[in-house]
């Protein structure tokens, strides 16, 4: 148990550190690196919380897919000529004030709240249970998410490739 807690704290610490890197660093590539750190440590936390399937998905899709997309985005929208990919930030004061406000509202109201105690069902075969749920209770969302992915990919591909088809416009 102790070991688990230590790992949990370590992962939370890594996550926090990566996010701080993202916020503080001006370089886009470093920010992407920070995001990766955050995503991987979150996957670790998920695994610790017995959500192995989710942890795997997080690693495969998030860290593997979304992050790659983002890095593509960075590459394609910046002319790389040895220059570091810097980005500016503004409204620090406003942003921090807002963030601190939101955070304090959330934390204060969290402390005011008495969460109901419920009995969690112990599920040993996480992946199998999720598979069954996806094909039974969650079949409708599962199918809809298929349509969603299809529509988004077709639309995104069309939008991004429009210039290739119409080079003169």
């Amino acid at each position: 148990m102790i070991l688990q807690e230590i790992i949990l704290y370590a992962l939370a610490g890594t996550c926090t550190g990566s996010v701080l890197l993202m916020i503080a660093h001006k370089n886009l590539m470093y920010a992407a690196l920070g995001l990766m750190g955050c995503l991987i440590s979150l996957a670790g936390i998920f695994a610790l919380l017995h959500a192995e399937f989710l942890a795997a998905t997080q690693l495969l899709i998030y860290a593997g897919g979304v992050l790659v997309l983002i890095i593509f985005g960075i590459m394609l929208t910046n002319r790389i000529a040895g220059k570091p990919l810097l980005t500016a930030a503004t409204h620090w004061f406003f942003g921090i004030a807002l963030t601190v406000g939101v955070a304090s509202v959330l934390i204060i109201s969290y402390h005011e709240t008495q969460f109901e105690s419920r009995i969690a069902s112990q599920i040993s075969m996480n992946s199998q249970a999720i598979g069954i749920e996806l094909m039974s209770t969650y079949v409708a969302p599962f199918e809809v998410s298929g349509v969603l992915l299809l529509v988004c990919l077709v639309g995104a591909a069309f939008t991004a490739s429009w210039f290739k088809k119409h080079p003169h416009e």
């Binding site: 409708a140 809809v144 988004c152 639309g155």
Partner: peptide
């Protein structure tokens, strides 16, 4: 789908289907 949804999962997916398609549609003047 959104008006039929009774579950937040469905709400989210249906809403995203609307939203993401409409973001793309706005760009259709090119």
């Amino acid at each position: 789908l959104l008006v039929m949804s009774m579950n937040f999962v469905m709400v989210l997916l249906a809403l995203e289907l609307i939203s993401l398609s409409s973001y793309l549609l706005v760009g259709f003047s090119f």
